[in-house]
Amino acid sequence: MAVEEKYLDKLAGPVAEAGKCLLFLFRMLLGIRFSGSQILTVLQQTYLIGARSLVIIMICGFFVGMVLSLQAINALEQFGASDQVSLLVGKSLFRELGPVLTALLFAGRAGTSVTAEIGLMKATNQIEAMELMAIDPIQRIALPRFVAGVISVPLLTAMFNALAILGSVVFSIGVMDLDAGIFWSKLQTGVYFGKDFVGGLWKSVVFGGTISLVAVYFGYSARPTGAGVGTATTNTVVLSSVLVLIFDFIMTSFLT
């Protein structure tokens, strides 16, 4: 095993790394058991990485909604079409900004902490202790965090979007005195459930999986030292952010 790793590292590093990451994903997915304790740990992790990201997601969502409306109204006013603001805000939120911004925030807030946590577990021999207890650490440590990420990101995206629309309501209706009826009816006729809403949801599921896989994998393969964990944490943010934007483009070109 050690010998193989050494050669893999030498051979085309990134490709091999991606392959290892994929194998890691398969090993994780093979560990799904739907047992009581596994569901409990998934719930626990959903709380730790999902629920704790909630506040930052909601605050950001609210202000993104406000600023989007401000910009949209400024631009649309020139054509006398400022009552289209909710359509513009809604579409761009559901299709792009909601999934992408939530994913980036999630990578920074939860991805890093997952990497650091697993890296530290490795540094303090916890992973090894598990192996010696005949507990598969991938199944026990990595899998629940991965699944929790896949569940959390779409839910967080929904809350981001909800708060953003609320922010838009506050600004457009509350501040700019646009008509509430027009606001809602524009959303309800112009934003499509299938294409915009479900499409965006799919995106966020993929983003959640990507970030969680990167975070878990980097934590798991971190060098078990302080510096190693630090590097791994940085790499998690960088790589998962880049991947999110790449996948966003790919998915957008397929979805539309």
Binding site: L43, Y47, G50, S152, L156, A158, M159, Q188
Partner: peptide, 22 residues
């Protein structure tokens, strides 16, 4: 807490789907 989080998330999904889409 995680239950509340899940419920909130699902509530947001439903609200968005029914109020802000067609």
């Amino acid at each position: 807490a995680s239950g509340i989080f899940l419920l909130l998330g699902i509530a947001a999904l439903v609200w968005l789907a029914t109020r802000a889409t067609d």
